[in-house]
Design a protein around this nucleic acid. Structure first.
Length: 433
RNA sequence: GGCCCCAUCGUCUAACGGUUAGGACGUGACUCUUUCAAGGUCAAAACAGGGGUUCGACUCCCCUUGGGGUCACCA
């Protein structure tokens, strides 16, 4: 099948997650058919269009790994291309110059002469859809003979770019009738339409720019991996035939079909995104993961953070969970302040805690600190004999100064033998006071 | 309000006339366990309502209800 798709954002706001999914599906479909997607900025509204928004969209696409044909088009740069078509419509009587333009009284707006018919088109996702165009009246298609408006520009661009499939949000469903009307007046062939369901906010309404984290860039800042975010986006409104929930971009391409896109809107569930992101974090190769952690914790002592990393890896969902590292695992970076009342825990008393810590100190002096297991092996029999709670709580507390922390074997491994023994001594001194 | 689209657990979804209506996230319990997580096991949780069609409807048709979109010289 011959396929050419396009992603036509209007640079009037930051890259929205709904737009990102539209881009993704257009990319997937094109790629699936050995074709490419075209990026086209719909910036006929010069007042609202900003280059900073273009930049945001471009960098967002790059972040997500969605590629497109190298030649990017802008409607603002194609103004002269539209003129002959407007002239043609005027000439054939399909359109006429009407009242003065709102912005400029010297110019006349161009209205499309509505034939008042019924337009029926077949949507790849929804089947046949019909509209009676009568209520559209004679709608305006250009501010003047040289300033086309959205519907006209889209139709001409899609024709010139030989777009075969228009995959866009459901919010464009009722726009389609206008565009088909123009298309027919111009004698253009119809593309295949596919109107995707909308991504809904937690109140089930359209995810607007006012909603929290509606921009792609928000997710980069929140510390999500682009692969995970993209994967989640794909799942909102599409289920691959394999039923897989975790799939790479290439796997998506292989499985993608328009007919598998859903019809109804889907709420964005941050919790599931977090879960998926953790899955991606967990499967990262060790060196890559360490590298990311290092870059994101540059203010901390890397020697220590590096040792902490394997334990942290199990516990984070997004990179931003790393922000709390110094707080959450402060005891790794600096000796804790101990509360004498907390040292013993609830399974023993101060006397017992002191006895156990003393004994643990002896055992750990000759133990291997190679890894958490080796530390565990050194003290496990003793702890089991004396009561694990009675032995291990004082140890863990002596090392962390926290009622909640990593397990004592992990902490000991991270700290190393010297610091571990030192902290046990400190705790003992406090107990003896 | 007119027009259009949509309707399965709280959420994302599977089912394409015949299933104890399945899975995932989340939630709860239990387990593991020195704490907190993670892990393991189990559980609760849905076909919006009403009519048809059919031997048989989550699946097909109609109506109602509900939700959403759209009605610019924005895109």
């Amino acid at each position: 099948m011959h396929v050419i798709t396009r992603f036509p954002p209007s640079p009037t706001g930051f890259f929205h997650i709904g737009s990102a999914r539209t881009a993704l599906f257009n990319y997937l479909f094109a790629k699936k058919h050995g074709s490419t997607m075209h990026l086209r900025f719909e910036d006929t509204d010069r007042d609202r269009s900003k280059t900073e928004y273009e930049d945001d969209i471009i960098s967002g696409l790059a972040w997500l790994g969605i590629s497109y044909a190298p030649e990017v088009t802008r409607q603002s740069e194609r103004l002269e291309k539209y003129r002959p078509y407007i002239a043609k419509l005027l000439e054939s009587g399909a359109a006429y110059e009407a009242e003065p333009s709102e912005g400029d009284p010297a110019k006349k707006a161009v209205r499309f002469k509505n034939p008042n018919t019924t337009i029926t088109f077949s949507d790849a996702i929804r089947g046949d859809v019909s509209f009676d165009t009568t209520e559209l009246k004679d709608f305006v298609i250009a501010k003047s003979v040289e300033e086309p408006l959205y519907h006209l520009a889209v139709v001409i661009d899609d024709h010139d770019m030989e777009i075969t499939h228009v995959i866009r949000g459901e919010d464009h469903l009722s726009n389609t009738q206008r565009q088909i009307l123009i298309m027919e007046a111009l004698g253009f062939a119809r593309p295949v339409y596919a109107h995707m369901p909308l991504i809904l906010g937690s109140d089930r309404s359209k995810l607007s720019k006012r909603n929290f984290a509606a921009s792609v860039n928000d997710y980069r800042i929140l510390g999500y991996k682009p692969e995970a975010f993209l994967n989640y986006l794909a799942l909102l409104g599409w289920t691959p035939p394999s039923g897989k929930e975790k799939l790479s971009l290439d796997e998506m391409v292989a499985e993608f079909e328009l007919s598998d896109i859903h019809k109804s809107g889907a709420m964005f569930d941050m919790e599931k995104l977090k879960w998926l992101n953790r899955e991606y974090l967990l499967e990262m190769p060790e060196p890559l993961f360490e590298d990311e952690v290092r870059q994101r914790t540059s203010t901390l002592d890397w020697e220590m953070t590096k040792k902490l990393t394997p334990f942290v890896r199990e516990r984070i969902h997004t990179w931003s969970d790393l922000k709390n590292l110094a707080g959450e695992y402060g005891y790794c970076y600096a000796p804790p302040t101990l509360d004498p009342k907390e040292i013993s825990g609830k399974n023993t008393d101060a006397e017992g805690a002191a006895r156990h810590l003393e004994e643990l100190g002896h055992m750990l002096k000759t133990a291997s600190f190679e890894n958490a297991d080796s530390v565990k092996t050194a003290v496990w029999d003793y702890a089991t004999k004396e009561g694990r709670g009675a032995v291990l709580w004082p140890l863990r507390y002596a090392l962390s100064g926290r009622t909640r922390s990593l397990d004592p074997f992990a902490i000991a491994t991270i700290l190393g033998k010297e610091k571990t023994l030192k902290r046990i001594d400190v705790a003992l001194d406090i107990l003896k006071e």
